[in-house]
Amino acid sequence: MRRKFLARRTKGEVVFDIVNTIIMIVICFMMLYPVWYTLVNSLNDGTDAMLGGIYWWPRVFSLDSYKAVFADSKIFRAFGVSFFRTIIGTTVHVFFTSMVAYGLSKKYLMGRKYFMAMGTITLFFSGGLIPTFLLYRSLGLLDRFAVYIIPAMFNFYNLLIFQAFFREIPDALEESAKIDGANDFYIFFKIIIPLSKPVLATIALFTGVYHWNDYFAGVIFINNPDLQPIQTFLYRVIAETTSVQMLQNMPAGIRTTSVTSQTIRLATMIVTTVPVVCVYPFLQKYFVKGMLLGSIKG
């Protein structure tokens, strides 16, 4: 059967598949090679890496750059901040946004059109960085862990994804529950949430990746180094100030022979990227599913 199917394919279809395959290989190479280049240079002796010419394999293998990175206790503290920020921020965001989306998905909600109009405006316009900074300062969020959590509790785009999913749930389920005496909170937590696991997982992944990768909030709103997340730590390493300090803290023998500020920066990039790289392949299907939610049914 397979041979008959292949025999029916025209020459144009074969050429089309070959061209598509070549294009995809080129795109994958362009996306993966920078990561590979960073990895092999971080695994190379720092002094030797300064000579250049390292493209595919380490020329002089060395783990001293990674030793320098993990010798700084600040990176573990930054990992901890990012971990708790991701877990708490994702949980709060999913809970709050889903609850608001469930309420706004009901056409009989008073003022629904007004709230939806306000939310739509925020998709195209924002107050700007300076007004945001002044607002956070007036709320007492500057230099506090809450600055990572409270402003990210709600996102209107994610609300639209939740709404598209909630509208596909039959109204008969809620009506039968109300006949049995259930209130809106009971229906939401006992009926809607268990049926919404796909969209909950999708939004949780969107939000979790955002919290893990965000460095901007730590740069603008945090001065306390104990509260900076891992991506802000990476930003400061790339800016050389932290990488030079890490280099100075290394033992003299290693510092003078195999570690440079450049290899420390490259090693830190790899260390901060590994968690997301390890998790993403197993959860990629949820990202695709999230983008397709509500695309078939209006």
Rank of each mutant, 00 (worst) to 15 (best):
R2I: 14
R2C: 06
T10S: 12
V14E: 09
F16M: 10
F16R: 15
N20Q: 09
T21N: 14
I23V: 11
M24P: 05
V26G: 07
V26W: 09
I27E: 05
M31H: 07
W36Y: 14
T38V: 13
M50T: 09
I54V: 12
I54P: 03
Y55S: 02
R59E: 08
F61P: 11
Y66E: 10
K67Q: 08
V69H: 04
F70A: 08
F70Y: 06
S73A: 15
I75M: 05
F79Y: 08
F79T: 10
V81Y: 00
I88C: 05
T90H: 11
T91N: 03
T97V: 04
V100Y: 15
A101Q: 11
A101F: 09
R112S: 12
R112A: 11
K113C: 03
A117I: 03
A117C: 04
T120C: 01
T120S: 05
I121H: 02
I121P: 01
T122C: 00
F124H: 01
F125A: 13
G127A: 15
L135Y: 09
R137G: 02
L142T: 08
D143V: 09
Y148D: 00
I149Y: 07
A152Q: 08
F154C: 01
F156E: 13
F156G: 11
Q163P: 05
F165H: 08
P170N: 12
I179L: 14
G181H: 11
A182I: 15
F185E: 08
I193S: 12
I203Y: 03
I203W: 03
L205A: 12
F206A: 11
F206G: 13
G208V: 14
G208N: 12
Y215V: 06
V219R: 13
V219I: 11
N224I: 07
P229D: 01
I238V: 04
A239S: 12
T242I: 06
S243F: 08
M246T: 09
I254L: 11
R255E: 12
R255P: 06
T263S: 14
L266I: 03
P275C: 08
V276E: 06
P281G: 08
F282K: 13
L292V: 15
K297P: 07
